[in-house]
Nucleic acid binder design. Structure first.
Lengths: 150, 150
DNA sequence: TTAATCTCGACTAAAACGGTAGGGATTTTC
DNA sequence: GAAAATCCCTACCGTTTTAGTCGAGATTAA
């Protein structure tokens, strides 16, 4: 049930850019704050740019900046685009369904469906802005369970 | 966030044995019902035996049977033992914590913690017996949200 | 013009995944 | 005591994924 380092790093980079409040940030600064090598970050930021999350500017004084408002960046969506489907199993995926020969008789599918739903509920209700402000909810009920340590 | 085929197959095998109500079941019968090759199943059942979930009997009329009652087989535990930690990230794992250089400053850890908790809540509240009887809850509240299709 | 910066594609080493293969040990049945 | 069914165990293997590295090029500001 792992998230890859690439996904983690992408989110770290977005968080750094979110904290710069609109200023361009050169990649070596992002690298310093995320503890990721410049070369690997290059790949990831390139992908984030192609996905439309960040804008880049070349040359001296160049760098990256968010293209979207942090409130418009959905963490579930980012993870899905970097890592693939949130579902633990193809048979339970809404965005990348893969049929299974057992299917109806399968006693596991309902389980995977619930797992997928709970993961998606958390991730899709969280925005980059929420992370920046340490507002993380479980997504259950209409309530406001807030996980806020420190 | 995937579950490996090995984990899925292990659960399928346990379900088949759970349906046999105590009778020994030869591996080729399990293979037929799970749609897994005999040779691969051998490996998986060997592992399940060493973990204490199944008992095996050799020779003619041999096969496998559950060693524990389906109500005592915790799905979260099985997955953890077959696949490793439920947490999407080492920094949020309760059973296999891995320190992270960012740690306190990290805005992502609270997210991974919530994700881990919600996954664990579902899987650890589900037993093999629940699966056999199509009782799957989200684990939220004390309530009885039951996912029961058909 | 130069130096900082992003762009892009190729490459690679290591690990994980998803099995396959084969020989050995045990048990029942005849 | 021989044969057949069955589990036991270790080794191996091809493919994919992961986690990067490398190098050359394009753009831009000063």
């Amino acid at each position: 049930m792992k998230v890859s380092s690439r996904g983690e790093y992408a989110l770290r980079a977005l968080l750094v850019l979110g904290q710069q409040q609109g200023k361009v940030c050169p990649i070596n600064e992002i690298a310093k704050q995320t503890l990721v090598t410049v070369k690997y970050l290059e790949q990831i930021l390139l992908q984030l740019r192609k996905l439309g999350y960040v804008h880049s500017k070349r040359g001296i004084q160049g760098g990256y900046m968010l293209r979207l408002s942090p409130t418009d960046i959905n963490i579930g969506e980012v993870i899905r685009q970097i890592e693939g489907p949130l579902s633990p199993m193809g048979c339970a995926s809404t965005t990348a369904y893969v049929p299974c020969p057992l299917e109806d008789k399968c006693l596991l599918k309902p389980l995977w469906t619930v797992v997928r739903d709970t993961i998606a509920r958390v991730l899709e209700q969280t925005t980059l802005d929420d992370l920046l402000n340490k507002r993380i909810t479980t997504g259950i009920g209409g309530e406001s369970f807030v996980k806020n340590e420190n």
